[in-house]
């Protein structure tokens, strides 16, 4: 696993049914573009998060394909509707095959 990868997500703890909520996510990752060279002039191989998904109770909210032009420590903000209480699952897919995930519960009244 790439070192120091740490996801952060911000989801409201409560919402009313059908309400639009804003979600923010950030993960610490170098997003090595594959365009840079090291001090000896060798290309530093690409190593990025290439996909990010957000799901709620098994249904998809957003599915993002990332290219090397996404900044270090990839940040996303988007909106979701929550029909009932449940759990968001956020998943990041690394070029090296690693998968990072985290989840957040929300109470819907």
């Amino acid at each position: 696993m790439a070192s120091g990868v740490k996801p952060r997500v911000k989801v409201p703890k409560t919402a009313s049914a059908g309400e639009t909520i804003t979600i923010k996510t950030l993960i610490s990752h170098k997003m090595e573009s594959g365009q840079r060279k090291d001090d000896d002039g060798n290309i530093i191989p690409r190593s990025i998060i290439n996909r990010f998904t957000a799901d709620f109770n098994g249904q998809n909210v957003i599915d993002v394909t990332l290219e090397p032009a996404i900044s270090t420590n990839p940040y996303f903000q988007f909106e979701a509707v929550v029909p009932e209480s449940g759990e968001f699952t956020f998943t990041w897919y690394d070029d090296d095959g690693d998968v990072y995930d985290t989840s957040k519960k929300i109470e819907v009244s």
């Binding site: 952060r8 610490s28 420590n73 940040y75």
Partner: peptide, 12 residues
């Protein structure tokens, strides 16, 4: 504090 990317490192 969420938009501020420094907080990734504060978490660390």
């Amino acid at each position: 504090d969420f938009d501020n990317p420094a907080f990734v490192f504060v978490d660390q």
